[in-house]
Design a protein around this nucleic acid. Structure first.
Lengths: 328, 328
DNA sequence: CTGAAAGCGCTAACAG
DNA sequence: CTGTTAGCGCTTTCAG
């Protein structure tokens, strides 16, 4: 059997209270006593039992990260990056982390065990009912990569508009005047921001934006390639396309190849997310970089603070930058 | 305050023992009583406290998934896939999951809290000391994507040799006789298996393998492209390359493009992992598919069984198959 | 089928 | 600075 605080207490000749203090508030114990406690502990290979502690302290130190999207798979590169940041920070802060999707969560929520979470990070397009549910249960909430009107929740988002602006500026600097926007099927928030960013950027560059030049497509490369074929086939085609994800950009590059358009010579393209594929494409893809890891870490920090009753900023914006490669 | 079992007991007029049974062993409680308990519970919005239960039951239900690799980042597409399988299953089985890297783990291991895990899944190239440490602590272990001689541990691996053989056969069927092997810097186990698979496959196809045709490179596309340039520049070059990862394959395709070699016309190439990039390359990459999700799920199942004292198979092999696309 | 009572390992007053 | 003591919420014999 594992050693308990009683064993240590007995062996070191002090009370369990002192043993407890020696571990969780070393400052309150006389140097000498503490040493004796530690010795006894290591002799017994004693390790404090986190469960008992949580029980006594009446807290769970458990948080959840729920990815809110329809897709079957919970981890694509983007959310995996956020997840990584969250995991790291959670580990560092000694928080238990449960990772799941909003859908799976509802399934197992019937099961009591789940409810022990003290805080939850909602990634992506969260349903209002989900939010209300957590609020009703007094669970602290942080939104990542999303904002919701009607709810006063702390959220951490990337500087989408800046990201788009950077890409547009780069394209403009390279001499492009006819820039198309291609958007994949992302969440309303993301699409909204990026679209707005595009309009803003084009305006400030003094460039016109023709409706024909902004197109929506699926988030798959194949779908993007199809749309791009249409967009680029005409005689009077845009000379650059600002794609709203790397996958869409890859689709555009496919289309360009099929049409015999050289990149970046006859067509410039920028991606978004700066994902692993950027280096695999030929030429390599210039893309907007967002520090997803940091978004995750920040979310956990906000959650921690919120759970501790500390006032937190309502919205935290993570800067974006342009990772320049060979497609513009 | 949250309702406890006492509140339910009081409201429903039965003892706490009965309330407890009503939830965890409904069969032992008379229908009628049970209904009363449930009513009281829902009226009070009572949810069993998992922490208290674990405390009473003397178990933590906590497992860990440690990714063992040197890279800074814990989640690449491959390990994220495994991780996803693990998370899903862990959630379903009501297991708390801690995800981290071997390195990070050692850092925080000083910290008591960590040690509560009852089982651990080691992904990739685990250090023997790590294993011994867990063994000493009586923590059940399952290996994923790795096997270790000298330790008798359950492990789940993909059928690497079969995967390689499938690729080689496909290449052979397409008429290729001079097939090169390009390996990235993976773990000893993976490199060993895939290399062995290649040798086996070539032999059974009656094809010679020249030492000059098997090359090692970094796991980056850039490095692979460099090596491929060398390999493909000579007059007497291989007509096909079997790459041991999709990233390496992407590098090969880059090299081919630079050398003006058309794919698959003048050069066929196959990848490994069937990752997201396969569809983004042009032409799309034929690649060996491994069901990483299932590997993760299986690992959790084995762990669960092992923790429950059930005998488990020592090695579980997950089948692989070839996802055919346009590069051969 | 149900109840009483004794823990599970740790912490937090409250005294000394 | 240290010890005593009373829980934290749930499970589980052991009786009834």
């Amino acid at each position: 059997m594992k050693a308990t605080i009683y064993d240590v207490s007995r062996l070191s000749g002090v009370s369990t209270a002192t043993v407890s203090r020696a571990f969780s508030a070393p400052g309150q114990v006389k140097e000498d006593t503490r040493r004796r406690v530690y010795e006894a502990a290591s002799a017994l290979k004693y390790t404090p039992n986190a469960i008992a502690r949580d029980m006594a302290l009446q807290r769970s130190n458990r948080i959840a990260y729920l990815i809110c999207k329809r897709q079957a798979t919970i981890l694509d590169e983007f959310y995996a990056g956020i997840c990584e940041g969250i995991m790291r920070r959670a580990n560092a802060l000694n928080l238990q982390l449960i990772v799941s999707t909003a859908d799976d969560w509802r399934q197992m929520a019937v099961n009591a065990q789940s409810k022990q979470v003290e805080g939850v990070i909602l990634g992506g397009d969260a349903a209002p009912e989900l939010v209300s549910e957590f609020q009703a249960r007094n669970t602290f909430i942080v939104l990542v990569n999303n904002r919701m009107r009607g709810f006063d929740l702390p959220c951490v988002v990337a500087d989408e508009r800046e990201g788009i602006r950077l890409a547009a500026q780069r394209l403009h600097a390279a001499g492009h005047r006819r820039i198309a926007l291609m958007m994949g099927g992302y969440s309303p928030y993301i699409v909204g921001e990026r679209y707005a960013g595009f309009i803003e950027a084009m305006a400030s560059l003094g460039l016109p934006v023709s409706d024909a030049d902004v197109t929506m497509c699926d988030r798959s490369a194949a779908s993007a390639a199809m749309s791009a074929m249409k967009l680029l086939s005409g005689p009077d085609r845009p000379t650059a396309v600002l794609a709203v994800s790397d996958v869409v950009a890859a689709g555009v590059m496919k289309a360009a190849r099929r049409l015999g358009l050289s990149v970046p010579g006859q067509l410039a393209v920028t991606g978004y997310d700066d994902s692993a594929i950027c280096n695999l494409l030929e030429p390599e893809l210039t893309s907007v970089h967002v520090d997803v890891r940091r978004m995750g870490e920040t979310a956990v920090d906000l959650l921690r603070q919120g759970m501790d009753g500390v006032q937190t900023p309502r919205i935290t914006v993570i800067p974006t930058r342009l990772a320049e490669r060979g497609t513009v």
